[in-house]
């Protein structure tokens, strides 16, 4: 699997994501600087990591979404390349228009970091196909702006189209319908607030995040 992980000024989970992808798939991702205008050829996966790109100034993800590399990511997504946005990466992908909805300040106002239970709602996508239908998995969250919002019509539509990938088992941040992760209509772009890259080996407290990266690697092999 050929993958890349982007670093924006203020990204702080870029190394974690690259390490997790390499650990699970055996392939070290290319590290990309935000100023790049073009992407390496033949990418199977683009990782948009967590952190505080541009210090969350203006709005979380808003400035990073306008950086040169994200223009190239939008084009790659249109060609069907898998794009995974985690936490701040999810915020960037919604700001870039690749995913529906927006992430607002947590309903409790405070930052929240803890391992939460997630219900896997879609087990058909290339990201989630190794999870069992109805399965509950445990993955950490760490965010201040994870309160997912979209209007009711959008929510009804994405629910109906199977675009809701993960739902919090217990509401933690006020998200509409407890949505924790969303796919685009084509199913090749996933944004999620929880951090699967922090749960890929037993010492971290569990391996529920590893199956997401395994699924991506498997999808590449199947399509080859």
């Amino acid at each position: 699997m050929k993958s890349a992980v982007i670093t924006f000024p203020g990204s702080n989970c870029d190394r974690d994501l690259a390490v997790a992808i390499e650990r699970v798939t055996g392939h070290a991702p290319i590290r990309l600087w935000h100023g790049e205008q073009t992407l390496p050829e033949g990418l199977d996966l683009i990782g948009v990591p967590g952190g505080f790109s541009y210090g969350d100034y203006l709005r979380s993800g808003a400035m990073a979404a306008r950086s040169p590399v994200v223009g190239a990511v939008v084009e790659a997504a249109a060609r069907g390349v898998a794009v995974l946005g985690i936490c701040n990466g999810f915020q960037i992908l919604t700001e870039a228009g690749l995913l529906p909805g927006a992430l607002m300040r947590n309903a409790g106002i405070r930052f929240v970091c803890r391992t939460v239970a997630l219900k896997v709602e879609n087990t058909a996508s290339r990201f989630t196909k190794l999870y069992q239908p109805g399965e509950t998995i445990h993955i950490p969250v760490a965010h201040h702006d994870g309160n997912y919002f979209a209007d009711d019509a959008t929510l009804d539509r994405i629910e109906g189209d199977g675009q809701v990938a993960f739902r919090y088992a217990d509401g933690i941040n006020g998200s509409a319908r407890d949505i924790a992760g969303v796919l685009n209509a084509k199913g090749n772009v996933l944004g999620m607030m929880p951090h699967p890259e922090r749960m890929v080996e037993p010492l971290q407290g569990g391996t529920d995040g590893a199956r997401l990266f395994e699924a991506l690697a498997q999808s590449v092999l199947e399509r080859a």
Binding site: D16, C113, R114
Partner: peptide, 19 residues
Amino acid sequence: RSWIWQQYDHMVMADTVQI
């Protein structure tokens, strides 16, 4: 003290093995 430490990202860098 969980009210306190859940406001701190105690897992970033993915090397925290005791929270």
